[in-house]
Amino acid sequence: MLEGLKIENLSAGYGNREILKDVSLEAPEGELVFLLGPNGAGKSTLLKCAAGLLRPRSGRLLLRGRDIREASSRELSRLVGYVPQSMRPAFSTTVFEAILTSRLPYISWGPSKADLERTEEVIRELGLEELAFRYINELSGGEWQKVVLAMALVKEPILLLLDEPTSNLDLKHQVEAMRILRDLVKGKSLSAVITTHDINLASKYADIIVLMKNGRIHAIGEPHRLLDGETIREVYGVKVEVIRGASLFVSPA
């Protein structure tokens, strides 16, 4: 099996509050790993640790077998494409330039030919040609989400960390975003860790689901094996009905 991201016995927190407690998991290359769990379970904190934005208290994070602490911040920045939960740009700029900005870990004085060409390539991959010179504050939620994804991908990362990438999207855009993401992850053998509150979306697109509760991992597994009424009740404290058809459907009982 190809080695993507491997997290070993990770603990982390802010101030004297410990949020993640002894978390271990693997995100192999070419697979979509979804993090599910109630608010405050530590999903976003886990992503921040993996992106190198939060220093773990203990434990290790290995990216392709290498401890991320050994990587320089520029190197780590190239390897990891992180998209925070909500980005609030302070001033507007064009889509092309917003994506180009994300090439920062490759840029010294100004963008090189390679930076510009890579930006154009990502714009084509995500079908953003029509939007390339629109201003980012004029985009719809679905368009912006694709731009954000492009910003993560333009760095040519080997690990994608997406914090609730579909939370503002309607059904059509959710499906579209997930398909694009799945094709990219499979096609380029990336590792991807995605947080969401949408159990149905996760069960449809995840290769691996990680259920988190109170900073610990409650269960890990393939969606169909992992998600049953009992497990979901344990994690969310809500009684649900799990309907198994062509795909799985979870509904409050």
Binding site: R74, S77, G81, Y82, P84, M87, R88, T93, T101, L104
Partner: peptide
């Protein structure tokens, strides 16, 4: 002027800029 690209990143988002090494 040397920091131009860092400001460009900062305008988008703090956490995002941090991931870009700023």
């Amino acid at each position: 002027w040397r920091w131009s690209y860092k400001y460009n990143a900062l305008l988008l988002d703090d956490e995002f800029a941090r991931n870009l090494g700023v």
